[in-house]
Design a protein around this nucleic acid. Sequence first.
DNA 1: GTCTATACACAGATAGAC
DNA 2: GTCTATCTGTGTATAGAC
Lengths: 231, 231
Amino acid sequence: MNYSEFQKVIQYYRKSNAKEAITENRKEIRVKKEKTVAKNLQRIFEATLKIGNKKGFQAMSMRDLSDETGLSMGALYAYFASKENLLVMLQRNGRDNFQKILEDCIDEAATPLENLHKLIRTHVYFSEAMQPWFYFTYMEGKNLKKMERKIAVDHELHSDNILSTVLTKGEQEGAFKKLPHQLTAALIKSLLNDWYLKRWKYAKMDVSVDDFAKYVIDFVESHCLVKKSGN
Amino acid sequence: MNYSEFQKVIQYYRKSNAKEAITENRKEIRVKKEKTVAKNLQRIFEATLKIGNKKGFQAMSMRDLSDETGLSMGALYAYFASKENLLVMLQRNGRDNFQKILEDCIDEAATPLENLHKLIRTHVYFSEAMQPWFYFTYMEGKNLKKMERKIAVDHELHSDNILSTVLTKGEQEGAFKKLPHQLTAALIKSLLNDWYLKRWKYAKMDVSVDDFAKYVIDFVESHCLVKKSGN
DNA sequence: GTCTATACACAGATAGAC
DNA sequence: GTCTATCTGTGTATAGAC
């Protein structure tokens, strides 16, 4: 799989994503017509990511958001109860989606090494396709209230676990070295996160999304793989 | 070198740091008495880091800062011209210090491998000692105005270069593999950054600062080192 | 050098017309 | 369903007393 193949797969997720955002937040949204909600909610999300990533969510005023979306402030508040509620909607929705897509990576019939490859590639490609959301969510995590913050942390630990489970299984099968897999998983995650956090840097050195995924795989394999002597 | 040894070395930097913060910003600071400035400026910096890291710099009000420092709002404005100026002072000062300490790592007489070790250990230990500043600076970078932002980016690229220069030298001497060193440097940086960005996670898995430095060194060496057959 | 009191701009949010 | 107009709280910043 490379990135251009991945883009086709992602279409399905994008659509289901939009619908879920509506059904999950039906009670906060005062507007009735599904079509209108779908259209405007997406506009609002995109505008929030755009402004939020430029100057930070706290610094974004509702007037900024009004200008960017073309909706009046009165209209905006028909789609969410408060500014904080908008933040929660935006983060929660993406997270659920991301978790699902990572879980779908694991193929019980495949080898741990194959699963590791798929996890890394999917992480890089998905964060490339949804870069603004990933960047926003990473940076604005601390603006969440206690309860939502805990959910965010749980999701992060869960995705670390998906990685470390694969590493542990690989060790049992003799493909990976015996290492502190949880720590390895955390470090792999930091490499993966860098793709959307420091995109400007990789653009500057002309590293494509496929180059990056390949190089991270090499990096991780150098460390984790059992080298078969004589091969 | 381990962390407890490093803590003695760092004392010198802490002191010179405080003095530089004053001389570099003498014109913005209206208060004359050196002693008073030294004491209060440090209080202000610490309070800013504390509140800023909890809720973000934008969300920190000057009233918050007044409560935390015990200084009135009027007094605060004797130490900086505006809230934005406070941000710039805080970031700039730490950056200069960090750059100096990294440059001091490089010992021309030592091998590239030794220099790589020293760079990694110093990065981890220094960011441990000054974690609030590192976290703050990473997260609040986007709140800087264009010019200051450019300086921040230049510093980041410069520290990447220190790493990649060592890798290149090591390749020439036959110790390291031929690899895209700039990319490798960026990835090593992302591992190092994770120590102060996700400290809670490493605390949770009971990884000490020395454990972490060691494991990052192992990880990087697996990838970069030329394996001598028969050793 | 630090305080209190205050200016005044702008934030988030809502009521009620259309 | 969306708009305009407006309420009220809070933000940064400063003037002037001590």
